[in-house]
Amino acid sequence: MRDIRGILFDKDGTLVDFQATWFAIGDMLALQAAGGDRRKADALMTVAGYDFERHCFRADSVFAAGTNADIVALWYPQVPPAERAAMTVGFDRFTADEGAAQSVPLPGSREAIAALHAAGFRLGVATNDSTGGAEKTLLALGVAQMFDAAYGYDGVANPKPAPDAIHAFCDLTGLRPSQIAMVGDNRHDLEMAHAAGAGLAVAVLSGTGTRESLAPMADVVLDSIAELPGFLAAKG
């Protein structure tokens, strides 16, 4: 742990309040897919991972962990692959713009990022959102200048839980995977950390994951990234 020099963050649920940011966006897309039928839209939201009884997204669901391509495939199974690919481009544009415009930072996230940057850590984002969406969100949060890179599902050959984003970050920074901490709120974040041989797999409870679902794969479970600077300082 003393050799950790770089940190890759998941975006939604780790830097950004997932529930506050994404329900309205997902609902608009579901209504479009349902042709304006409210009941059908709610069914699409449910199958993609929204729990209407608990008013939150389910951990490791398509909404919480998947890509826009996964959502399009789930909601439009009858559409030919080429047409779905074109629809995914539209989803990417829409979610990039709306996700940035409506992004709600998690409490203490900006301060934690600033502290980690000041401490000399190389910072990046690895998300199953689009790369453009990640970059626009970092700009909207006012923290883009502190990040070396953002990797969306479309910025690497294979998205999370594959290790590609960690390998790309290592290529960029010259760090080894063992010098990287991966921080996220879903199991696929931790699966990517293990697949890449990352030095530290950090789970946070600020998103859709639970302690029960995350702890078996995490080196440490924190309430949020607000605790990360202090944790790394104490272990350094």
Rank of each mutant, 00 (worst) to 15 (best):
H117N: 11
A41P: 03
Q19T: 10
Y151L: 00
D70K: 09
T95D: 15
A193C: 11
V156N: 05
L15I: 10
A119N: 05
A24I: 02
K11I: 07
M146L: 15
L29D: 05
S178E: 15
P161W: 03
L175Q: 14
P80K: 07
A126G: 08
R93I: 10
R211S: 13
V183W: 07
G155F: 03
S130K: 05
F57E: 14
D189L: 13
A100L: 02
L74V: 10
P107V: 10
A86P: 00
W22A: 01
I4Q: 11
K136V: 00
A201W: 12
V183L: 10
T88Q: 13
G49C: 08
D3Y: 11
R54K: 15
M182Q: 13
M146E: 14
I4R: 09
S224Q: 08
E191Y: 08
V156R: 06
E53N: 09
M87A: 09
I225K: 05
M182R: 04
A157G: 08
G108C: 09
D189P: 15
E191I: 05
D154R: 04
F18N: 01
L228M: 13
H167C: 08
H55F: 12
V143W: 02
D223T: 14
Q102D: 00
F63D: 00
A73M: 06
F121I: 04
P229A: 04
S109M: 14
R2W: 01
A112W: 03
L123M: 12
F91R: 14
V202A: 14
F94G: 02
H188V: 12
G184P: 12
F57M: 10
R54Y: 07
R84Y: 12
L228G: 08
G124F: 00
G49T: 06
L222G: 10
P107H: 14
G35F: 11
T127K: 00
D70E: 15
W22Q: 04
A114P: 09
V202G: 11
Q32V: 12
M217N: 13
M1P: 13
R176I: 11
A119P: 06
L106T: 05
W75H: 06
